[in-house]
């Protein structure tokens, strides 16, 4: 079954603060600990695509507006 939502996180826009990871209700986000962006920061990414519900909590709490959120359209 397709996930209810998905997010796009700007790798360069992310500062790796981890607030999105902390506040994700379904724990589908992680910090990329084996990679950094050009600022040397471990960026957040959608680590569990299946569970994202598109609630946008991550984007709302993200200080740097680095997250774009999409949600499955309701069936017409």
């Amino acid at each position: 079954m397709a996930a209810k939502g998905f997010v796009e996180i700007s790798v360069e826009g992310c500062k790796g603060c981890g607030l999105c990871v902390h506040h994700c209700p379904v724990k589908c986000l992680s910090l990329k600990m084996d990679d950094t962006n050009s600022f040397g920061l471990h960026y957040a990414y959608l680590s569990n695509e299946e569970t994202c519900i598109g609630c946008a909590n991550c984007a709302v709490i993200c200080p740097d507006a680095a997250i774009t959120v999409y949600r499955q359209s309701k069936a017409v």
Binding site: K15, G54, A56, A59, D64, A65, Q72
Partner: peptide, 27 residues
């Protein structure tokens, strides 16, 4: 089959804010 629910506001200029990671100033 997906619709946009959140994106960065256009009035927030496309510049990297100088604040430290996690600072509520940015929020």
């Amino acid at each position: 089959g997906y619709e946009l629910v959140y994106k960065r506001p256009a009035t927030l200029l496309d510049a990297r804010m100088h604040y430290c990671p996690g600072c509520f100033h940015s929020t």
